[in-house]
Write a protein that binds this DNA or RNA. Sequence first.
DNA 1: ATCCCGAGGG
DNA 2: CCCTCTGGAT
Length: 210
Amino acid sequence: MTTDEILDELELIFPNAECELIHKNAYELLIAVILSAQTTDVSVNKITPALFERFPTPQLLAKAELSEIEPYIHSIGLYRNKARSIKGCAAALVEKHQGIVPSTMKELTALPGCGRKTANVVLSVAFNVPAIAVDTHVERVSKRLGLAKPDDSVLEVEKKLKRKIKRERWNKSHHLFIFFGRYLCMARNPQCERCPFQSICKRKKIEAVS
DNA sequence: ATCCCGAGGG
DNA sequence: CCCTCTGGAT
């Protein structure tokens, strides 16, 4: 099964795969993605409307006290780190980028709380730059599908995916893998009966080793 | 390698 | 109860 055939099949199963984080602009997307670390986007979407109503611009968020930010995001977990990250990120946007979200990997990953995965999502979704963000879902399903080796790092997974997938399909592929991992090839109880990739799946082999 | 850390699902 | 969730900083 070629990589293109895998992607074609995923497009049939998930024709509406796209970013599910609520956002009105690049600033809101960046903050939402930072908040989404180790948290479901359903949880993030519950709190971002009120957060962005209170802090609609990086200028306002940068000036806020952590004690005022934390209650808005408490329910998503890791809230102290995330409050520091989004406040620091907003401050950096104001001080170094005139309040505008930058559109390069180098500038994005220099922002507090914004690592390579977050930067790739912002590049892809906000700026339509070809990118593949490798998160927990993408890493897991890439290895199960045999597109990466079991002990590959996330960066190695990203490189292999970019090598095997044509550039025009990078942005869509990311969301196809996310939806596949979220709704079918789950970490805990994958729905193997409904999966069209049983013949190529490496899961048994991977879990036998670990 | 470890910490952060609440909500939701099984 | 345990595991997982679109990770990043130290």
